[in-house]
Structures are given as structure tokens and as C-alpha cells.
Simulated scan of single mutants.
Amino acid sequence: MTAPTTTAGTKLGTRDYIFIGVYAALYFVLIAIAAAVVQPLPFGMPFMGFACGILGGIPYMLTLAKSRRFGAITILGILLALLMGVIHGNVYTIVTAVVAAIAADLIAKVGGYRRMTLNVLSAGVFNLWNLGLFLPFYIGRNDYLASMIAKKGETATMQMAGLFPGWMLPVLVALGIVGGLIGAWIARSVMRRHFERAGLV
């Protein structure tokens, strides 16, 4: 199936919404797998964003290839924000998902959704949605840890808190971006012919 031939910048149509829905579902499944693999590891939590970026690369890049219009990635981010809001009840994740999605959409739009370099960069920015999962360790940390202690106990809470010292925040940002870039690069390599037929360079 070839990508839509209409130019980017026009309004999203029914076909675009179908593509967004399909690839959003695939994205959710893949990041759930990434989380399930990484979270049980003793020091895995800080690498969750990295893993999500790698596995989420293909559905993200397919969304760009199939709907080269502004708004597709933003909607993907909004859907992600709603899902994470329900699962985690974390307002920071909702905010970071929406902001990262809009920023990624704008980056890809600069290249008309056809410049592969900008599309890959947008994937790295989009993957910063996961930063909000960890912001409670840095914003209102004491209150957050107190609520965790009530739910999980002091030992488990302190072990998890130890994974997120102050210096880890920029590392989380870097891991999120790098994971998104690697995922997009893998998608480009695996589906190179598909992207070439779609006119992405």
C-alpha cells in the first residue's frame, strides 16, 4: 500500500485517522512490552524511556510515512497522554506527552514530513513523553515518596527513589532522546524500501 499522495499541511482525513488509530495501538503494545521487560530488572526503571523509544520507532515512523500532515503525531501524543493518565494518574506524563508530540510534529513539518533526518530527530523528541513518568521524583519529591511509602512500603520506595538522584534527570532526558533516535533508525533500516516508495529521503 502506498502512502497518500496529497501534500503535507492539508487537513487530516478519514484515512489519516485510521492510520493514526492503527499505529497508535501498535505503539501502545510495543511500549507495554518494553516496560514489561525493563521494569523488573534491578536497575531497569531509568532505562524504560530508552527501551520504549527503541520499540516504538517503527509505528512512529509509519505514522509519519502514512499521514504526512500536521496533527497526526500530535494526536498520537494526545492518545498516549490519555492512556498514561489513566494508567499512572500522573499529570506530568500527560503534559510531557502532549508537549513532546507537538514539538515532534513541528520538527517533522519543517521538512514537509519527507526529510528523513528531521523525521528521525522528531522521533527522539517525541520519545521525551516518558520523562513525565519520573518527574514526581524531582517535583514534589517528598510528598510523592510519602504517598509511595503508604502504598508500597518504605523499603521498596527507598530502593526506587535511589534510582533517581538529582543528577539522573538530564540522563533521563538523554536516554529518552537517544532511544527514540535509535528506534527511528532501526525503523528506517528495516523498512527502507517502504519509506523510499513513500517519498521520504
Score class of each variant (00 low, 15 high):
L41P: 08
A146L: 07
T157Y: 02
I73E: 05
V178R: 06
K11N: 09
A150T: 14
S67P: 03
F137G: 04
V38N: 06
G57F: 01
I33D: 07
A3K: 10
V91Q: 10
E196W: 09
M45C: 09
A25W: 07
V120G: 03
S67E: 01
V91G: 09
N127M: 06
F164G: 15
T93V: 13
N130Y: 00
Y17A: 07
A81D: 15
N119Y: 03
L83I: 14
T2V: 08
G21S: 01
T63K: 01
L76P: 01
T63V: 06
F164A: 15
P42I: 03
G132Y: 05
I94H: 02
D16I: 09
G56W: 00
M116A: 14
T2I: 08
A184S: 13
L62P: 12
K152A: 14
F164T: 13
I58R: 10
P46C: 11
K66W: 04
M48A: 13
H194D: 13
F50M: 15
Y23E: 05
F134D: 08
F126Q: 02
R188T: 03
I186G: 02
G21R: 05
T96Y: 05
T74K: 12
L135M: 06
V86Y: 02
V37F: 02
G49L: 02
N90S: 11
A101Q: 01
S122D: 02
G89S: 01
I149T: 04
L172D: 10
L145Q: 06
M160E: 15
I139P: 01
F43R: 10
T7E: 15
M84H: 08
G180P: 02
T2K: 08
L145K: 11
V173L: 12
R69E: 09
R193H: 02
Y23D: 01
I20D: 02
I87L: 14
K152Q: 15
Y17C: 10
G124V: 07
R197T: 10
M168V: 14
T117E: 14
M191V: 05
L200S: 13
T2E: 13
G13Q: 15
I186M: 07
T5K: 13
L133P: 05
A8Q: 14
L128T: 04
F164E: 14
V120K: 12
D105E: 03
L128S: 00
R188G: 04
A156S: 15
K152C: 09
P165V: 11
I94W: 01
L135S: 00
T155G: 10
L172N: 05
A161F: 08
A103D: 00
A35N: 05
I182H: 11
V99G: 14
T96A: 10
A72R: 08
L106C: 07
Q39G: 07
I186P: 04
I182P: 12
N119A: 00
L26M: 15
G77T: 11
I102E: 05
N142K: 13
I54W: 03
I94R: 00
A101Y: 03
Q39H: 09
A150L: 12
P42A: 03
K11F: 09
W185F: 13
L200A: 07
V91Y: 15
A104Y: 00
G111K: 14
V22C: 02
G199S: 06
S189I: 10
